[in-house]
């Protein structure tokens, strides 16, 4: 488990509409804010303070193998995430905890475990006695990390929009939204990466791409810690040997489009 800025891929988020939710004070009808793929819509406690832990329990419909958690746009200063081992809530290995946290997004890696429930406990907030909130909670299984990052990456955000001229010639611009589309140009990728790309291509469902790989400090949109996209691999899997020498890897371009 290394976090060195290499692009990572994950399976579907196990926090979704199929789950059961139980929250100390947050509105259960708003649980979708945890998995709506928008950091800006936040699930928030109601009437909480630093002496009242806010506990969110999420029960999956069946056992799920997980080894990664991303908590985006939160204000947790101290707290933890644990899993149900069948008889009690216990810590992951290593434990997922916050203590004097100041960041708003955290990514955790731990040993894979098969679970049916997780519990997020938020004890205190970064601003004293504030309501506790989380914009996005992703609990998933890593599919793989590339050995070599691409030499080029061209993110694009094609939009869905309308433009209307009003009777005096002004323009009303209706912006429905935009989704990431990115071309990644890998050079000298080893067979392990090619195998990963083949697995992504053959998957029956979309997957998450994490361009930062969990590395903190990137500031460009798309590469920040909170930037994670649910995508499909939409171009043909096509590559060429990087040189005439076998074993020097392959050059491959992959195109990902957000669903």
């Amino acid at each position: 488990m290394t976090i060195d800025g290499k692009i990572k891929f994950f399976g579907s988020n196990n926090v979704n509409a199929d789950d059961s939710f139980s929250f100390t004070s947050a509105t259960e009808a708003n649980a979708e804010f945890l998995y709506d793929r928008s950091c800006s819509t936040k699930l928030q406690s109601s009437g909480s303070d630093d002496s009242t832990p806010e506990v969110w329990e999420i029960t999956f419909p069946g056992a799920r193998d997980i080894d990664r958690v991303l908590v985006a746009n939160h204000n947790i200063k101290s707290g933890k995430i644990e899993y149900w081992n069948g008889s009690a809530y216990v810590a992951f290995s290593p434990a997922v905890t916050w203590s004097a946290e100041t960041a708003s997004t955290n990514y955790f890696e731990f040993t894979s475990v098969s679970i049916t429930k997780i519990r997020l406990t938020m004890d205190t907030t970064q601003v004293v006695d504030a309501e506790k909130y989380v914009g996005e909670l992703l609990v998933f299984k890593e599919l793989g990390t590339v050995s070599r990052n691409p030499e080029k990456a061209n993110p694009d955000y094609p939009e869905s929009s309308k433009k209307y001229k009003t009777s005096q010639g002004g323009t009303t611009y209706v912006y429905f939204g935009s989704k990431l589309k990115i071309k990644l140009d890998f050079k000298q990728s080893p067979q392990a990466d090619l195998t990963l790309f083949r697995a992504l291509k053959d998957r029956a469902s979309p997957f998450f791409v994490y361009l930062s790989g969990g590395q903190t400090g990137y500031t460009e949109e798309g590469y920040r810690e909170q930037d994670i996209y649910y995508v499909n691999y939409i171009n043909s899997l096509k590559y060429k040997l990087s040189s005439t020498l076998h074993g020097s890897g392959v050059d491959i371009k992959i195109e990902l489009a957000e669903v």
């Binding site: 579907s12 988020n13 009808a29 979708e32 998995y35 709506d36 793929r37």
Partner: peptide, 13 residues
């Protein structure tokens, strides 16, 4: 009893 949102289901529009 409750309405079920389907325009975004399992994180897909």
């Amino acid at each position: 009893a409750d309405w079920v949102r389907v325009d975004n289901w399992k994180q897909i529009d």
